[in-house]
Design a protein around this nucleic acid. Sequence first.
DNA 1: CGTTTATATATAGGCTCTAAATTTAGAATC
DNA 2: GATTCTAAATTTAGAGCCTATATATAAACG
Lengths: 402, 402
Amino acid sequence: MAKPPTTPPTATPTMLRRVNAGKVLGVLTRARVMTGTGLIEATGLTRATVHAVCNDLISMGWVVELDPGRTSVGRPSRRFEFNSHAGYVLGIDIGAAKTTVLVSDLRGETVAKAGRSAAGVKTPSERTEIVHETVVEALASAEVSDAQVLAAGAGVAAPVDRDGNILVDDEFWRRFDAGLAQRLTELHGWPVLLENDANLATLGEHWRGEARNVDDLVVLLAGERFGSGLMDSGRLLHGSRGGAGEMVFLKLIEGVGDTHGIARIARENGTAAVADEAVHTSLRDLATDGEVTAEQVFRAAADGDKVAQGILQDIAARTARVVATLGTLFNPELVVLGGAVAEAAAALLPDLEAHLARYTSTPPRVAVSSLGDAIVSVGAVRHALNYVEQHALDLELSCRPV
Amino acid sequence: MAKPPTTPPTATPTMLRRVNAGKVLGVLTRARVMTGTGLIEATGLTRATVHAVCNDLISMGWVVELDPGRTSVGRPSRRFEFNSHAGYVLGIDIGAAKTTVLVSDLRGETVAKAGRSAAGVKTPSERTEIVHETVVEALASAEVSDAQVLAAGAGVAAPVDRDGNILVDDEFWRRFDAGLAQRLTELHGWPVLLENDANLATLGEHWRGEARNVDDLVVLLAGERFGSGLMDSGRLLHGSRGGAGEMVFLKLIEGVGDTHGIARIARENGTAAVADEAVHTSLRDLATDGEVTAEQVFRAAADGDKVAQGILQDIAARTARVVATLGTLFNPELVVLGGAVAEAAAALLPDLEAHLARYTSTPPRVAVSSLGDAIVSVGAVRHALNYVEQHALDLELSCRPV
DNA sequence: CGTTTATATATAGGCTCTAAATTTAGAATC
DNA sequence: GATTCTAAATTTAGAGCCTATATATAAACG
């Protein structure tokens, strides 16, 4: 997404109104319903200004006025509410295995949801097509039209720079990039904001996950392969080419050596144990064609299987080294583990924290994501909402009130 | 430095003037001398506004008006210049071995400089005293009074959070912290802005070093021990407790294992080689009491000594792993090597880059600092200047014009 | 039914900016 | 040396925005 070539913003009296309107709107998005007096206290503005701004926002469609409140003595107060149905945003997770689309109102409440497997997809255009179909399905089930959609956030497993450009040598992704955002915008009319999936996961955790009041944060996606999103003082890091949070360095970490994630290690080590005749384990009974899944290994460990438990201990030790590196180099307050096997990873926490204490006397807190597999799409919604809040006063709402 | 408890900044017409005055002042600090028309073009403001703002700034002492220009036809233009002698700032480097103080005018030109060894210093109060003495000496040689000093930046080798608080378990530093900033402010009257030394080095490189137009940057102080400053999109990272950039993780890196810097490794391995009777090296002739310095090892390598060259190759390999980790995890455009042995480190660059290419196909550029041992104090000056620019319109200048 | 109370609305005044008209200071021209 | 030209400064008028103050309004209370 190239930014529009705005002229150098010169401070004019008119932009005061913009600033103050933005402040009022910001308060209203975070609170459910506010009286005029409430807004005066929350914003520090004068009553006259607050009402003028609210009248503006109402005529723009961003705010609706409710019936006057009749709580106590005195003249009933005007009551204002953010018009969460002024428009909608989409959160799109374009994963390797699956594409997920969330339709959300402007307060971030999910209105509809659709998912589609990406198995067997070969070409960029096939992939774009899948995303398109999923979007259409989600919008239909939400009974929302393209005209009502103000923006869409979309997460991909590739480096994305601050302007939303995918930057990767891989030819497939390059062509995918060239196609996706433009094509979706052509088809539907709304802007598409690309971002790295781990970064969106970080936005998601910061917004509605375990990191709600934490501004210095690392989110570790630890499913098939490790990936991370880095947040410092509430801001996502990107690096010069969108590569911030890439985990290539794990190859250099003693006792880690690769970027394989928790699910992959569990699966591979479990399958290896099954193949080894000398090993005695209940995993062998669960295996199909000699292969076990990560979930089976986790379950077997929970049921007391020693071999499976050993695998988990190994994973905890490896993960502890990853967390220790990120925790000491970035000094986040919290590290959140997310991805496919997040809930199962909860069992790893005690072991992991014990290892962690060996590497640093001031370890970060470690938590397991509770957003499940929505972690990226929820973050994508937040990403789109950020855009909308930023540009609220420039956007035309399709559904102006009379 | 605790921030003053500012009221929520409400957007009033008066603050428009602040914004525009800040914009004009910003242009003037970066350009030497500007005409009214020049400022109109640079700021996008109207002539009326530009002149009103300039008149304000002149009466505040931030700007001086020169004789009208008489370049071409037409009415001569008023010419404005940033008053770089409206005040001064200090850049203080409180190193383990040495304290350095730079006195700088508001354009960042060094006016005077003083340094003092910290050898044999034991207590926090002794250390504070040394800093105080060095400051007094520097101010005297610059013929600048305390009243003219608007702020001082100070770098320490400890974690410092965004508010300038030293955060470290070590009792010595904790007491030092409690004393230093307050005591200097008590004695001299100007505010002291503490910051981590590697972070200041990063500011220095970004301002006047190798990273002048680079906003995604890592600076690696690699003298006695590795330390790093991290900048993403022009902003320094701090982490939740000021620990961002700490290099504890090096213990986990295969083939590194500790945070020893280039100088230390060179010295120790050189001395070890001298002690080993079986080794044939010219270092032995240079050694005193069987010990060699890092500088001697670098010189011997340059003179063709095979053993010294081997040591440097080892150092290059180790450093490459450090750079590879930071380069892939952060994705800076540039990594700058600085610290005591920076110039000597230039000899390592080819080897280092060759190793680097093995770890990543998109390595960052690597450069060697040319700021020498002023890297931290120059950054401290920049840190103080940032504060002054931020608060320019709130600060009282001691030397108002008539 | 008037008083009390909290809030909304209206009015006056002061900043700030822009835009357009007017003045000014020097150079070029006659 | 007076006139013209030019680019810039200065002045004036106008509009937007905010604050502060005064006035009006809609309920509850006695």
